[in-house]
Amino acid sequence: QPPSRPTTPKEADLNRPERMGKLKDAMLQVCEALAYIHGHGLVHRDLKPSNIMVDDDRQVRLMDFGLAKFLADDAGITADGKLVGTYRYMAPEQILGEPLDGRADLYSLGVILYELMSGRPPFDAKTPHELWRQVLETEPPPLLALNLHGDPQLARVAHRLIRKEPDDRFQTAEEVYEALSE
């Protein structure tokens, strides 16, 4: 039971039924696309809002596979040791330079969903170092504390997707799809 206070204009806008329907539909399509690429042994490694395009027919397309890697390839760092990906959406294991699998993309999807539901990222800092510290060491504010009238099911999915340990997240895009379809 969320605390009772009037809905803020921002929350009213974030929670518009039409927007929530489009959001859920787009998330389901992203899950289908991730299931496809993960099923073919690829990890996107740079999932972020600007790499998710929606056309006039509301068909979602994943873009920019420039950082995608086959799972059989090496870890998530480039040959010269530089981190790749966009910091705000990077999974903890990507920040640490550990080998990646599809769960890193699912973490990024969780950050996107958190932002879409709250109007802000789960972690926010002025420098990459401070952002990485937050991602690795702190818990984000509960979504339903930022958006009291947000969809509890979507909030649960987002929080599970952004857990620190890959084993604590959804394990496949298909599992996320099922959770969003409930």
Rank of each mutant, 00 (worst) to 15 (best):
L23V: 08
Y114Q: 03
V54Y: 01
K126F: 11
Q171M: 07
L42P: 00
A75C: 06
K126Q: 15
P121N: 06
A33G: 10
M90G: 01
M27N: 01
S108C: 04
L34G: 02
S181T: 15
D57H: 14
V176Y: 01
R19T: 09
R156T: 11
R133Y: 15
P152T: 09
H159S: 13
P140S: 03
S50L: 09
G97F: 09
D168E: 13
A72I: 15
M27H: 03
R169S: 02
A173R: 02
P99H: 10
A68F: 02
C31P: 00
E175Q: 15
F123T: 01
M53V: 09
F65L: 07
R19A: 12
L71W: 05
R160Y: 06
M27R: 03
D74E: 12
V111I: 08
A104K: 00
D57P: 00
N51E: 09
I37N: 07
H40V: 05
K24A: 10
L144V: 05
P6T: 12
T78R: 08
Q134L: 12
L42D: 02
Q59R: 15
P152V: 05
P9M: 03
N51R: 07
P2E: 08
L136G: 07
R61N: 10
P166D: 10
D151C: 08
Y89P: 05
G76V: 06
P141H: 08
P99Y: 08
M53F: 15
L113R: 00
R156D: 13
K69A: 15
L23F: 03
R103I: 01
Y36F: 15
L34Y: 07
F170D: 01
D57Q: 15
D105C: 00
A72M: 12
V135T: 09
G150T: 04
R169Q: 05
G102V: 03
E139T: 12
T138P: 02
W132S: 14
L83K: 11
Q171G: 07
E178G: 03
D74F: 10
D124V: 09
E139F: 08
L161S: 04
R160C: 06
R16T: 10
R156Q: 15
L42F: 13
N15G: 07
P142C: 03
R16L: 14
L71F: 05
V43I: 13
R88Q: 15
R163V: 10
L148F: 11
Q59S: 09
G119V: 04
A72S: 15
R103A: 00
R160F: 06
D57N: 14
A68H: 07
K22S: 13
G66D: 08
Q171E: 04
T127H: 10
L109P: 00
K69F: 05
P128E: 08
E18I: 14
L109Q: 02
P2V: 09
D105T: 02
A75Q: 14
R58H: 15
T78S: 12
V111F: 00
D101T: 06
L180K: 06
F65Y: 12
D13E: 13
K10N: 12
D25C: 07
P128M: 08
Y87E: 14
N51K: 06
F70R: 14
